[in-house]
Design a protein around this nucleic acid. Sequence first.
DNA 1: AACACGGGGAA
DNA 2: TTCCCAGTGTT
Length: 373
Amino acid sequence: MGVDRITGEAQDITAKISAHYVDNARNLPWRVPPKLSVSGMLPDPYHVWMSEVMLQQTTVAAVIAYFQKFTQRWPTVADLAAADEADVLAAWAGLGYYARARNLHKCARHVTEQLDGMFPSQEAELLKLPGVGAYTAAAIAAIAFGQRAVVVDANIERLVARLFAIDRPLPKGKADIRMGMDALTPKDGAGDFAQACMDIGASICSAKAPKCGICPLQEHCAAYAAGDQERYPVKPPKKAKPVRKGRFFWIEQDEKLLLVTRPPKGMLGSMRALPDDNWAAGTDGHGKPPLDGDWQLHENVVQHSFTHFSLEVDLAVYQSEKIVINTGDNKSTEVGLKPDDMLWWPLDGIEDAGLPTLFAKAVRWAVKQKLKE
DNA sequence: AACACGGGGAA
DNA sequence: TTCCCAGTGTT
C-alpha cells in the first residue's frame, strides 16, 4: 500500500489536522497559540531554535523547565553568545546529549558574529548551522519564518507511517514518510500544520496504545483499517546493550570536592565530572586511582544506562589525611590528572557544578552515606 | 549505512 | 525490564 492510494484525500486530511489544532493545541512556552498565529504572528526565531535543539530526542516534559531557564538567563542570541561555554554546559546538565549544548553555544556565536544576530530564514541556510540538521532546519523555517518546509520528526514519522501504512522499515522508509508529509503539507501555515501533526502524534497517535477512537483521521488511516496501528513505523531490530564497569574517585579536602573538566569530544564532552578510570574509552575502566594513598572502595553504588551501553559504577573514596597534587606546572601528573582541568568545588553548592546526571547520582549517594555516619 | 551520543517517563 | 522521545554528527 503506497502513498498514492491516499493522495486524493490529502486535502481532506490536511484540513482535519489543521482544524483539530485550533481547539486542541498544546500550550507550550515557545509556541504562538493558533488564535494569534492565524493573524500572522510568528514566534521569536531564537526561541524556536532553542526549543527545537532542546527537543531533539528529548520529551516535551523534560524540556520546558530548561527552556524557561535558558531564555530567562540569556534572553537573546547575543546574550547566549556572550556567555562562557562552561556556564552554558553547566546549565544544560541533566538534559543529555551534550554535543547539543556545545553546538548551541557555537551556533549562537556564529549567528551573532557572522550573521548580525539574525537567524537565516531559508531551510538551506539553516542547515549549515552547527547542531541544525534536516528536521530542525525545516522546523525553524516553517515555524519561525512561515516558509513551506516538510517537517518530519518522530511524531510525524509515526503519524504518516500509520496513515499510509508504510511498510518499508526505517531508516529507508523515511523517504516514503517524507513524501507522504510533503503531500499533506499546505502552502501556507506549514509551521502550525507541522505542530498540529506533532500534537496529534504525541497525544493521540502515540507509540503505544494509540487513541484511534478519538482520532480525527480515523477514517483515513490505512493502519487502523487493517487493525495494525502499533506495527508502524516499522523499525529494524535493536542491538543488545553491553554492560560496562567504571570507577569514580572521591577526593575531598576542606569541604571541597575535586572535579575535572572532561575532554571536549566524546562522551559527556567538556562537562564537569568526578575523576574516573576512563570507562568511557570503550571498555571497562582500569580501576586504578589517580593518586597514591588509602582508598575505601564502595562497589556498584550507581547504575546508569546510556544509549549504547549500561554502566555499573564503583566509588573509591580517598582516605589519606593530606592530598598532595602538584599543580605547580602544566604537565600531566603521573596519575592522569591535568592541573588545568582540575577544580575544587565546595560540597555545599555541588548541585551548581553542572554535573551530568551520572555523576550527580554518585554525589547524591556519597552525601547520603556521609549523613548516615 | 552504521554508530556514537543522555536521560527520564511510561507500561 | 524495554521502549521511546520535536535528531545530529562522524566514520
